[in-house]
Amino acid sequence: MTTRVEPIQATGGEPVKQHRAWWHRPDAQAAVLVPALALLALPLTGDFSAWLTLTLAGLAMGMMLFIMTSGFTLVFGLMDVLNFGHGAFISLGAFFGFTVLAGLESWRLVDSLWLNLLAFGLAAVAAMIACGLLSWAFERVLVRRVYGNHLMQILITMGGLIVAEQLIYVFWGGEDWPMLKPAAFQGGLQWGDLVFEKYRLLAVVLGLVLFAALMAVFKWTRLGLLIRAGVENREMVESFGYNVRRLFVLVFMAGSALAAMGGVMWGLYDEVITAHLGQSIMITVFIVAIIGGLGSIEGCFIAALMVGLLSNYVGFLAPKLALVSTIGLLVVVLMWRPQGLVPATQGGQ
């Protein structure tokens, strides 16, 4: 690669607006990795239909990971708060969703796509509202007092996670609960030789819709603008007179609601939920957030897809290495970009 010498403007002139081709942008560079990873896995798996199944599963898992991680990474980016309690909302969301679905048993089983979707939607919305409200209390009681002190944050939110998990045991009992999919999403769609699992398609579609919605909010609304600005430079936004704390509480609640939705989806995907669910997913959430670059939505999306795809491919090729492979990915990415794929302070712009 040859180095280009930029013409130096005379001082006092307009700052040079850099025109960069899309392949110079860090987020575009990172985004290319996702299809690259998928194509790389094609010859390794050998069989096209197996590859397609794995890719769909990987994308579905990636979308769910994205839903769960987006809130976590934004909360970090905006307020520098490391919320270990995020996992509690994943578990709680799954359990709230489970309870609502159990109440709508007849709608879940009836042979009608719309009633099935309604049951699923109601469960997800109820879980999101409940967890959003709970997270408001969580923020007030636990997180508010430890802003700016990472050590205390980790300890306090870890304590919150322990207590929340125990409370799930208290209210729902210690057993593993089966969480069954709505009738319309059981089984797969046949298309020639290829089989697509319906629920995975639903997860991919929901994830894409959510990503698009989030991006739309961030690009085109005042609220999104403020959040992005807050991630980039909090003091500056505060000095303009905006109440970043209030903004933050909003993001915290929205993030926890997303975690709850992810929990519902994950529970239906695995078809079984335990109080430990959130704690074990939290580890993957951390990895995704670090790979993507803490605080970056685009990075989080790309990283979630990569982790989802990679763990499905590796799970197929060498099942023993599934979790180890994501750590490997983490190390490789951090060596390439120590701040994660899309560093938040550049906003991927």
């Binding site: 074990s280 580890i283 180890v324 951090l334």
Partner: peptide, 27 residues
Amino acid sequence: VSLRVKTIFYAMITLAVASAATVLVSQ
């Protein structure tokens, strides 16, 4: 790898490594 960076990175990376080790041991 991680002590250079902040407390939080170390916390998260050690958590990931520890859980990977647990999986490895059971495999």
